[in-house]
């Protein structure tokens, strides 16, 4: 069964501005679907139509087997939504906000227990009574996820979940989202960040100037963007022959250039971790390890833009 089915979806603002044009895709239940495109591509417009915030100019949407907008009221309790900048009542505590949204989400039984669990899941324990206006953007996003999960949704729609977060905050949020998908929640993630897609999604569709390309598996997409070979640049404090030997033993290594330690190897997911592991195991003190070009750089190049 499909969680989302979109056919010929079009959104025009004031007749002349086309935000989305003839978009068609399906999201099977249980998958993590990524909609990848630059800011202004029309991703949020698609989300706004999926959630009945705005009406489509043409086309059809079926969410969890119900026509949107006509039958949205029948499925909204099965959907969770994390906006790009989640809005809360700043003069209320985080707990009071969640309790308010829980009451509107038909969560009555074991409400307090559920709220407690969600604070734990979102990593906000100890901040329950803090006023939301004192929350950082990262904490607001965490609270946004908790609010979106109140009704235990089957489908979670996320709009730019990592935007505006520092690296640690981003990592935590993405780990949290990944955890949700493991528990059979269908994810629809719209982002301009190719790393979010690579880390979370099974399927990806790219979007540009209102047009959605045919979805493909994330594995194929990443291979297509990056090419088959990747170069890792390592900075090791105590490089020696033993460490080089260990690196050579990693599956897929094609060549090692000792000056600046550039390693060419066949790309596969988790390759950084493998190289990191063998270096450390051989007694190497790794100061840095990064891909060149990075996935973002490769993606921007492929899209015909510039990295800088």
């Amino acid at each position: 069964m499909n969680a989302i089915e979109v056919q010929g979806l079009t959104k025009r603002y004031k007749k002349s501005v086309v935000a989305v044009e003839d978009a068609s895709f399906t999201v099977p239940q249980g998958t993590a679907f990524g909609l990848l495109g630059p800011i202004g591509a029309g991703k949020s417009s698609i989300i706004n139509m999926l959630l009945n915030f705005i009406r489509p100019s043409a086309g059809t949407i079926k969410t969890l087997d119900r026509e949107i907008p006509a039958q949205f009221h029948e499925v909204r309790h099965r959907i969770g939504y994390l906006p790009e900048r989640p809005g809360f009542y700043g003069n209320f505590s985080a707990e009071r906000n969640l309790r308010f949204f829980a009451n509107l989400s038909d969560v009555r039984e074991e409400r307090e227990e559920k709220i407690k669990k969600l604070f734990k899941l979102a990593g906000l324990e100890g901040k329950e009574t803090t006023l939301v206006r004192a929350y950082s953007l990262g904490d607001r996003k965490r609270l946004g996820i908790a609010a979106a999960m109140l009704n235990e949704p089957e489908l979670l729609i996320l709009d730019e979940p990592s935007t505006g977060l520092d690296p640690q905050g981003r990592r935590d949020i993405m780990a949290l989202i990944h955890e949700l998908n493991v528990h059979d929640v269908t994810l629809f993630l719209a982002t301009h960040n190719v790393r979010d897609i690579a880390e979370i999604c099974d399927v990806v569709a790219t979007m540009r100037a209102g047009h959605v390309a045919a979805p493909t598996t994330t594995k194929d997409f990443v291979a297509d963007v990056r090419g088959k070979t990747v170069q890792l640049e390592a900075d090791i404090a105590n490089i020696n022959e033993r460490i080089l030997q260990a690196i050579r033993s990693v599956k897929g290594v094609k060549s090692i250039q000792c000056e600046g330690l550039k390693i060419s190897l066949e790309y596969r997911p988790g390759i950084n971790e493998d190289v990191n592991y063998v270096i450390t195991r051989a007694g190497g003190r790794l100061r840095s390890l990064h891909e060149s070009p990075s996935l973002e750089e490769a993606y921007v190049r492929k899209m015909g833009g510039r990295t800088r």
Binding site: R76, P83, L104, N151
Partner: peptide, 9 residues
């Protein structure tokens, strides 16, 4: 906050 309201039942 309006979207947080209208997305709920």
């Amino acid at each position: 906050t309006l979207v947080q309201l209208v997305v709920r039942p």
